[in-house]
Design a protein around this nucleic acid. Structure first.
Lengths: 195, 195
DNA sequence: TTAGTCTGTTAAGTATTCTAAACGCCTCTT
DNA sequence: AAGAGGCGTTTAGAATACTTAACAGACTAA
């Protein structure tokens, strides 16, 4: 008697979208609803209904379904895997922090708290980081995509070409010079971020 | 055929004893079945049946019940993992380099002690990191140099083009697929090295 | 005792999930 | 065109979860 007979359209409760999460995991596993159903030992209809949030599966069935992916129930509900952080960046979204001859395109704006700094660099012919001894307590590495560039790290000097790579401790004084006639393109990573 | 109706005693499958776990948590909260039922907005019978593993609650009901303790669903299933020591590792957690269609060129040979892992990757058309959900405890980021590639990270999916970039926690299941007709070239960094 | 009130369990009926089968749509092959 | 086979969705009915209400035991107080 004490029951409001609301149509059960909105099974969705708090923040967690069970259907969408299952769908995402199924897709990542490269499975169709039927394939997953077969692996899990359930009918394909239940997969469809769950993904549409038209039914709230019993824990037993959910377990079977997740075992077919496979993913553990605890991982499924684990919040850290549902993070809505920004993951993809269009090339226009990379923030330009360089000036003049050297273009530094960086992933994200505020890197505090982050562990990696990724730079997509373009150095014009003649570009030179100068004689200043760059020093920061971090590790730096990367790959030359295009062009040829002279790098000096400590007492070592070398000209890197497309496909060549580098890895060094940033505390060692280092310098970059584009001695060629073409633009040099580099992708580099630094941990922790130096600026 | 009169033996068809065996009592369904064993609803529980693998290691996880849902009923016992709920009972333990209820005791820790100092609640009776009826008290918890009242807080959760369900009948007391369902608490009793669940604790005896005589029924496998729907996720919706389980959520309500746990909210009355209160405990999150993810905690409910994950605390089990805290007590258990990590002994076995699924093959998905082990990584293989260069599986035909995908070329991973890694800086250096022995990355032990190093903080950064740089990969210069070339993915042939149709290349796919596979159905396995890659998982490793690190941070991964990089830039797409050439081509277009479909990336799935958690429940987010996107096609990245040349110049686009990415940054995510590697613990989130992710997958790469070259759905285009050209080779895809990527430079990525991982800290700490995942393999 | 006897009633009162708590505990957890159980029975019968309702509500919901799950299965099996069909539906409509699309793509590929004949 | 037509058939086969893939996909996700929908639907009627079987199986199961959930509610209501009663039950049995334990403890307390008159």
């Amino acid at each position: 008697m004490s029951h409001e007979n609301l149509p059960v359209m909105e099974l969705e409760e708090d923040d967690f979208d069970l259907g969408a999460r299952l769908k995402a995991l199924r897709f990542m596993a490269g499975l169709s609803q039927r394939e997953l159903a077969k692996r899990a030992g359930v009918s394909n209809a239940v997969i469809s209904l769950i993904e549409q949030n038209k039914s709230s599966p019993s824990v037993g069935v959910l377990k079977k379904v997740l075992a077919g992916i496979p993913v553990s129930v605890s991982d499924f509900f684990s919040e850290e895997l549902v993070t809505r952080e920004k993951v993809f960046f269009r090339s226009e979204e990379l923030t330009e922090i360089g000036s003049g001859q050297i273009s530094y395109k960086q992933l994200g704006k505020d890197l505090r708290g982050k562990e990696l700094q990724i730079l997509h660099e373009h150095l014009q012919p003649g570009a030179d980081t100068g004689e200043t001894l760059l020093r920061h307590e971090s590790v730096e590495a990367g790959v030359v995509i295009r062009g040829s560039i002279e790098v000096t790290v400590g007492d070592q000097r070398k000209v890197l070409h497309a496909g060549d790579a580098f890895y060094f401790d940033s505390r060692i004084p280092h310098r970059w010079r584009n001695v060629g006639e073409d633009v040099v393109e580099i992708v580099s990573a630094t941990t922790p971020p130096s600026f």
